[in-house]
Design a protein around this nucleic acid. Structure first.
Lengths: 319, 319
DNA sequence: TGAACAAATGTTACCGATGTCAAGGTATCG
DNA sequence: CGATACCTTGACATCGGTAACATTTGTTCA
């Protein structure tokens, strides 16, 4: 920077200001310095700036990256979220520091200016984090009552309700819900589904499944059919369960969607390629990531940020 | 640090050395200083250290995070790789700076001490990267002849050969390969498969499919059967294709594995949950990530690093 | 006993940018 | 015309560590 300053015949600080876009330097000098800096191939020393400003321009994103019993590893959403986060942060001059919970002790991570927590839901870890680091925190997931973090997530209640409305609109009156109600997000989908149906005095059946696999979905419908349970629509808490349910229906010679309608949740890419193409509730993960990023940036900027629910869209295909 | 030094009655530099584990300080003082630092709640200012040492202790990992036509978004491998990378780097005191190609211009990224490139294959972008940043580069993917980068990837040729050997061992003599041979890694699987069979004077059939979906796999076998082509084994370039193939066979009343054996590639979690449980070639992505990380760390340390192929394991389940 | 040497600790300077405060120059106003 | 305010620019100090070199202390051996 000293070199550029010398070449331009000004002082270092003027160069600094010119390149940082400070309004304190005249347009003419800024132009000249910018040009000169380019010619010299000058690159700002980010470490020096970060040091001086006592900020790292980094936001830590905590993700679970080991394939686990949970389904998160199976579908594309973590990467889509990361894509949205990364893009939005990059535009603001921030970088994404990726970590697992285990890696949080690492010194690199402690320098982060903010934290985004993905996939863990809202648990006490997040609180610990926030306290330990004393840094803005934003969480992805379902909103747990009585939690004062900034939470971004999709509107599972509304998503569930939209499926109920769809079923009613196409004349279905004996719907079933399949899924793991212990999972907070799934529970909210169920709530929305149940409440919307209640307005028409319909009480859906509920088949609780703890797994997220196709087999689990197939088994759910097979056992219901074999027990003589009557139903004409299935809303599954996830797409894989829905696909399994369809296979299960086929195995009992029921036609989808003629005899039974099926709707999944998440609209994973596989759903489009499935036979028949799966109807599902879509969440825009990329946008969700961008939203998370914007919240942290706002907080970093000293502005307030509120929790927000993202809208969902029911994609009706062939089931 | 000055405070700790004062409390311990030594100079700053001694504290610095003690905490950094330098052999220059006596064990007794180190012990005392370490204890004192803990008591004071002293935290190293990482930015200051990075600045002084002219290193960021960050490794940039370039990933494609937007759901695209490619299948990468569908399966868990990017996150598994990231998990391995992250864990290994964290242990060495490095952090993971996640970026897309688009985000590489971002100033935060330019500070990285090293780069790991995922999922793009070895193309000229990587070269550009390396030149632009002048930092160690390691690439994940298939080894392209005449490329002098450090490349880590699984041994696709060996993986393909192992499937061939398996088919021969169980008495199959008319195998088919399904997959997109334009994809370098798939092409290598095919090569290994073909070569291993050639040693027994068998020439497999080849059904080229550009997609990665189940439908594509189903369509492949259906069209072959309908054209009267005879075969008793299917090796698919990916698990989804294999699953599709199984459904296609079932649709034509062929039993798996009695009439036709099917083996996929990647051993995605879904394969285990599939009915019947899918046989597949497994790659250890977590270990692959760790390996990538170790290569970069070696290069950062000034040590040489060589390209390396990871072994694969054929998991025989019920197909 | 004293020179030579090793181990442990200290002194000084510096990494490269930027916030603070001061100073030079120009425009505006009574 | 002089004074005040404003707009640009600069000098200096500083962020918190650490490398290089200097110094002290203790040890060994002729």
């Amino acid at each position: 920077m000293a070199d550029v300053a010398a070449a331009a015949g000004v002082s270092k600080i003027t160069v600094s200001r010119a390149l940082a876009g400070s309004p304190l330097v005249s347009p003419a000098t800024r132009e000249r310095i910018t040009q000169l800096a380019r010619d010299c191939g000058y690159k700002l020393n980010v470490s020096a700036r970060n040091f001086r400003q006592q900020r790292s321009h980094l936001v830590a994103v905590i993700v679970e990256m080991t394939p686990s019993s949970d389904r998160t590893m199976l579908d594309p959403y973590p990467l889509s979220l990361l894509g949205g986060i990364s893009q939005e942060l990059a535009e603001a001059g921030y970088g994404v520091l990726l970590t697992t919970r285990a890696g949080m002790a690492s010194s690199s991570v402690r320098t982060a200016d903010g934290v985004i927590l993905l996939g863990q839901g809202v648990n006490r870890d997040s609180v610990k984090l926030c306290d330990e680091m004393g840094v803005p925190l934003v969480v992805w997931g379902a909103d747990d009552d009585g939690d004062d973090h900034v939470i971004v997530g999709s509107d599972n209640v509304r998503g569930g309700a939209s499926v109920a409305e769809h079923f009613l609109a196409i004349g279905r009156h004996c719907p079933v819900f399949i899924g793991d109600s212990d999972h907070l997000e799934v529970a909210q989908r169920l709530t929305g589904f149940v409440n919307a149906l209640a307005e028409h005095d319909i009480k859906p059946l509920f088949s609780k499944r703890v797994g997220w696999t196709m087999d689990s979905g197939a088994e759910a419908v097979r056992s219901m059919i074999d027990r003589g349970v009557q139903f004409d629509a299935v809303f599954a808490g996830s797409d894989l369960l829905a696909m399994g349910a369809i296979r299960g229906l086929e195995a009992r010679d029921l036609k989808v969607p003629d005899d039974v309608s099926v709707v999944g949740y998440d609209d994973i890419p596989l759903g489009l390629a499935f036979t028949p193409p799966l109807s599902s509730v879509r969440q825009d993960w990329h946008e969700g990531g961008a939203l998370l990023a914007r919240k942290v940036l706002a907080l970093l900027d000293g502005k307030p940020a509120e929790s927000q629910k993202m809208s969902t869209a029911l994609i009706v295909r062939k089931t």
